[in-house]
């Protein structure tokens, strides 16, 4: 189901219906033509167009902090939500949204997830950021310290003695942890 939404939205860019498009250029130079209501979910884009009077439809807005890969992911999410909104403007179909979101993140690696969190933060899409940070939290829940270090790419700067002391002091917190 989720894939059908994704394909229908990507094909809509070539559909004949005349829709206002906004051009967004990612860090690696690719230009995305995005339907206006979808692009407006990106707060940074919305305020750029609201605050600058001299921008036209031809203006290509550069997004130097967003990679093409992240942009694909972001647009997939925003398009799906726009679709939900269009179909049911009153109340989003919760079950369907949840099913879409679950399928959507399942396909993302940890690195992709982090890249998208950074992009969502930069583009200021609070709903997506909220969702993705929740997903990241779920992925590190009940894991070992080593797993979490690898997940975030954090260097351990404790001496072995310091770490051993901490582990001894809070021994109870190290019980029942999932296998990595």
């Amino acid at each position: 189901m989720s894939s059908s939404i994704a394909s229908s939205s990507s094909s809509s860019s070539s559909s004949s219906k005349k829709e206002k498009k906004i051009s967004l250029k990612t860090s690696d130079g690719e230009v995305f033509e995005v339907e206006e209501p979808v692009a407006m979910q990106l707060e940074i884009v919305r305020s750029f167009f609201a605050d600058n009077e001299d921008v036209t439809e031809q203006t290509v807005m550069p997004l130097p902090n967003v990679s093409t890969a992240a942009m694909h992911g972001i647009l997939e999410y925003c398009r799906a939500h726009e679709e939900f909104r269009r179909r049911m403007p009153e109340a989003a179909p919760e079950e369907e949204v949840r099913a879409f979101e679950a399928g959507y993140v399942d396909r993302k690696s940890n690195e992709e997830l982090k890249e998208m969190i950074l992009a969502a933060n930069y583009l200021n899409i609070s709903k997506l950021l909220d969702f993705l940070t929740g997903v990241a939290a779920k992925r590190i829940e009940n894991k070992s310290v080593e797993y979490v270090r690898a997940f975030f790419g954090v260097e351990n700067d404790f001496t072995p003695e310091e770490e051993a002391n901490l582990r001894r002091e809070y021994e109870w917190a190290f019980e029942g942890v999932d296998e990595d």
């Binding site: 940070t133 590190i140 351990n156 700067d157 190290f174």
Partner: peptide, 23 residues
């Protein structure tokens, strides 16, 4: 800011353990 947003969603036992991640 984002790190806090992620860690803030975790159960307390996890956080006590992750104090060992780094200084």
């Amino acid at each position: 800011e984002i790190l806090c947003n992620i860690l803030g969603r975790l159960p307390v036992q996890d956080l006590i353990r992750y104090k060992c991640v780094c200084k």
